[in-house]
Design a protein around this nucleic acid. Structure first.
Lengths: 336, 336
DNA sequence: GCATATCAAGAAAACGTTTACAAGAGATTT
DNA sequence: AAATCTCTTGTAAACGTTTTCTTGATATGC
């Protein structure tokens, strides 16, 4: 494999000069530079990045660490991260812990020490040991969806509370619903708990009492949502609309409602959260809270690079991404 | 940052011994090893991977290069790759060319030279320059979906031809269809052209003539499929069933058919290819060719590691992944 | 015309490891 | 008892760059 020495020998200069020529250092004569570049090209030389990384203490790689690879959410976020990284001339290392908690910790520690210039961490929750590691971290880190729990590190997240609050208020005030059910997500999941809080607050602020029987956990999955919805539909008194804390569970509701031979939205309304691709294709189209998923990745990456590129210590930042509304056919139409 | 020297000093041994202890070299006294490991832990020492990579000429990183990050297909394939890489103790670098052709080439060249031990390449087609690079490659490479076009490099792909052929034969022989339309994909796309060939061969082998008017390009997208389907529906003589070369275009067909106020499958049948997540949720459920997407990633990674781990030159391999059938409600029910 | 500033290029150190080779001690063979 | 082998550890080279510090030459100022 051809290295800098070969180029230097061929060009009759020292390796230092070759290095300078390749890095556009001003203190190399234009003609020398041309000669070196020409020879480098002829020999098909490209610098060894590992060696460069070792000496410069920089890798131009950022890591994206998450529990599980796959799915819509992942693929959209990584798209945003990739876009920004690409424009900043960075490469992206994807590290999944395969849902093993302590693997996530080791991975993080592992990467912190070397190899990557920054880390984007996507975690549903934080273990104590993880907090410990984050507290003593040296590599720039941005966490997605960790807001509130750990003020010491940068975070980017969607406004779960406000998004839910607005949607529920809309259901009550503009669509006239007054009996609302809730299919919530796992309690250890930040997004899930924030959405539940938004739901409850909106009810309270609109003087609507919350029926405990209408609140069931659906595990953020299609089947979980289906099960939860079935239980609600089996009750004597049913809600007029069900707010599922994510679209997957809302899709589960569709299945349950179909198997009960009921109609959406005439018999019961369904509302989701996330605005996943699927939500546009199920019939009727789902009313849901739009989440600009790609933006989450973009913002996280931007924040990370801001940290990486500033020499002095930057203050911790928390970016909140606002949500939007998608009005589909799964809720009754607007009151006049 | 604590390095191997610090550990050596603290333990009163040479850095060589520390290195050996950490790498489980047998020729280090158990008590010495214990002492070293203890001190390493106390000092919170982890070896610098870059330095290790430089000397060992190995990075334990593989790259996954593709035109565009995002979407279902990507996310499933990367899941398979990640799974195998994880089990082999490898990290995964994702490099998108953002659809810029020559960026893909540079990226490839770039990575070839250093940094990664192997490359998985996902490409819809091969430019001449790309072929040139691949011919002179030194790093182990596996291409996804490049089969046939470039025998010199390892490939993993699904059996597009057989998958389509079987499905079309089934439509004709078991369901009794005899008038079949085709919405094909882009002509530069391997998968698309192979699927078209399977379609045509099945028709021929079953003595069914192919109506050129019923063959339209849909660009592999939802809107493309919708447009193509609309054109077919506007014809005087329509087919009984439309085979869309992927599920996205099939979903587009649903939209077009709805807007023509026709019923699936009574007025016209729709069949897709890919079995994407979505296909299970549209109504009626789509009849489609199942593609084990995760397996593609898995097999590609396995093949790559086989290459990486064998010292002698291995022969080129082409792995073909077989497809399956999903019978939904978008086609008429089986003849008795 | 001499001291000084400027400039291009080279020598060598540095980054943090792994590993080939050497060395010394103790055990084993002849 | 000398020779050989084995076992543990140390010394130093190597990986391929970047960069600091020199060096020598030429230009500039007086």
């Amino acid at each position: 494999m051809v290295n800098i020495k070969d180029v230097a020998k061929q060009a009759n200069v020292s390796i230092a000069t070759v290095s300078r020529a390749l890095n556009n250092n001003k203190s190399v004569l234009p003609e020398t530079k041309q000669k070196i570049l020409k020879i480098a090209k002829e020999l098909n030389y490209t610098p060894n990045l590992i060696a460069r990384n070792l000496i410069t203490q920089k890798t131009n790689v950022i890591a994206f660490i998450l529990p599980e690879v796959g799915g819509d959410y992942f693929s959209e976020i990584i798209r945003g991260v990739d876009e920004v990284a690409f424009n900043s001339n960075y490469q992206l290392l994807v590290a999944s812990s395969h849902s093993q908690r302590n693997t996530m910790e080791t991975t993080l520690k592992f990467l912190e020490k070397s190899r990557v210039d920054g880390i984007i961490l996507m975690l549903p929750s934080l273990s104590d040991q993880m907090k410990d590691i984050l507290a003593n971290h040296t590599t720039p880190i941005v966490a997605i969806n960790g807001e509130g729990e750990f003020p010491a590190i940068n975070t980017v997240g969607i406004d779960n509370f406000q998004g839910t609050y607005s949607m529920i208020s809309f259901l009550i005030n503009s669509l006239g619903y007054s009996k609302l059910g809730l299919i919530k997500g796992p309690s250890y999941n930040y997004d899930a708990t924030k959405r539940r809080k938004g739901f409850l607050k909106a009810l309270k602020d609109n003087n609507i009492s919350h029926n405990e029987d209408w609140e069931i956990e659906g595990g953020f999955s299609v089947t979980g949502g289906e099960l939860a919805c079935s239980r609600i539909l089996s009750l004597n008194e049913k809600p007029e609309v069900i707010f599922a804390c994510n679209d997957m569970m809302a899709a589960g509701c569709y299945k349950a409602i179909q198997s009960f031979n009921l109609n959406i939205p005439d018999d019961i309304g369904v509302v989701g959260f996330d605005h996943v691709f699927l939500s546009e294709f199920i019939t009727p189209k789902l009313t849901t809270v739009h989440v600009p998923t790609v933006d989450i990745g973009r913002e996280a990456a931007k924040l990370l690079f801001k940290q990486i590129n500033s020499e002095e210590e930057t203050s911790v930042e928390h970016t909140k991404i606002s949500t939007g509304f998608i009005i589909g056919g799964s809720t009754k139409s607007q009151k006049k």
